[in-house]
Write a protein that binds this DNA or RNA. Structure first.
Length: 292
DNA sequence: GCCCAGGTGCGGC
DNA sequence: GCCGCACATGGG
């Protein structure tokens, strides 16, 4: 387990490192995590059960099992080797949805800042003398005052609408969780009656991967599209690759679906993990080198 | 100044 | 269906 890779991969926001500990909120527990001699150390307040932490860290998921015993391809093997210990965390669905609705077209730093400003009027939790703020739950969110001048535009109303839908049961995460990947994805993105404003192809994949138990979900943003073209060219149909080279980086929903199909049939349930490793790789490794 | 940042909704063909 | 644009702001 490598907590630096895990928390620096960009999968989760509002965590920070202090004195060698990773600090953030798990459920309602202010939590500190670090590894030592191969074991995971936890401090939390109020004290979290071992089960709760295991659930958050997905310690029941074995990546060897997701691979199904087959090796994927050479580049992927070395990628997974380079970022060995990176784990996909299981986030609270509402916090995750909020984070990724906010995330559209912002830098990671800006996303963290916006979420921080939303949390700034919420409950303060403490552990070991350090303090951090909870994000509001769906019903509390409706009472939070809108932060002044903090990047949000129309996104603020998307968040409010999603919060209302959760409150009145129109949006039911457990129901989506129970669906197979492609049905769940379509219900979020395509279906008129269940579409959530602010959730497009990429945000839907984030929610499915990080909160709704779909390890094959493979969110594709600009970094990932560059990574796919550079290292997995055969998964990107020629017409789409040409388009990406010539005009901007935006894909239509249909094009996103086409690439996503190829990616999922290649990586299977290892997809989500590969995606996080590739994301970290593209953002940190020097260009032109196959590995970090 | 200008471009880019974990995209998405909308109105125009 | 696809295209072009607006959306808000800060850092390089």
């Amino acid at each position: 387990m490598n907590l630096d890779f895990t928390f620096e991969s960009g999968q989760i926001f509002q965590w920070r490192k202090a004195d060698g500990w990773w600090l953030g909120i798990v459920g309602t527990h202010a939590t500190m995590l670090r590894t030592e001699d191969g074991s995971l150390l936890v401090r939390s307040n109020p004290e979290a059960s071992e089960e709760r932490i295991k659930e958050f860290m997905c310690l029941n998921v074995r990546y060897d099992d997701l691979a199904g015993g087959r090796s994927v391809d050479e580049f992927t093997s070395s990628l997974l080797q380079d970022y060995r210990g990176l784990r996909i965390l299981k986030q609270d669905p509402w916090s995750c949805l909020m984070s990724y609705i906010v995330s559209a077209s912002l830098s990671i730093r800006a996303i963290d800042r916006v979420l921080g400003s939303i949390a700034s009027s919420c409950r303060e939790l403490n552990v070991d003398g350090l303090s951090l703020r909870e994000l509001p739950g769906p019903s509390d969110f409706l009472n939070v005052r809108r932060p002044r001048k903090r990047y949000l535009g129309r996104k603020w109303s998307y968040l409010r609408q999603a919060a209302r839908d959760i409150d009145d049961g129109t949006l039911d995460f457990d129901e989506i969780r129970s669906l197979p990947y492609d049905v769940a994805w379509s219900s979020l993105v395509i279906a008129k009656e269940s579409h959530v404003m602010g959730v497009g192809p990429k945000v839907a994949d984030c929610l499915l991967l990080f909160s709704l138990d779909k390890p094959e979900a493979f969110p594709m943003d600009r970094w990932i599209m560059r990574g796919l073209q550079r290292h997995y060219g055969w998964l990107v149909p020629e017409r789409i690759a040409t388009k990406l080279r010539n005009e901007g980086e935006a894909l239509t929903v249909r094009e996103y679906e086409a690439v996503s199909q190829n990616v999922r049939s290649h990586f299977g349930k290892l997809g989500g993990l590969v995606q996080e490793c590739l994301f970290l790789h593209m953002r940190t490794a020097r260009p032109g080198r196959p590995s970090a």
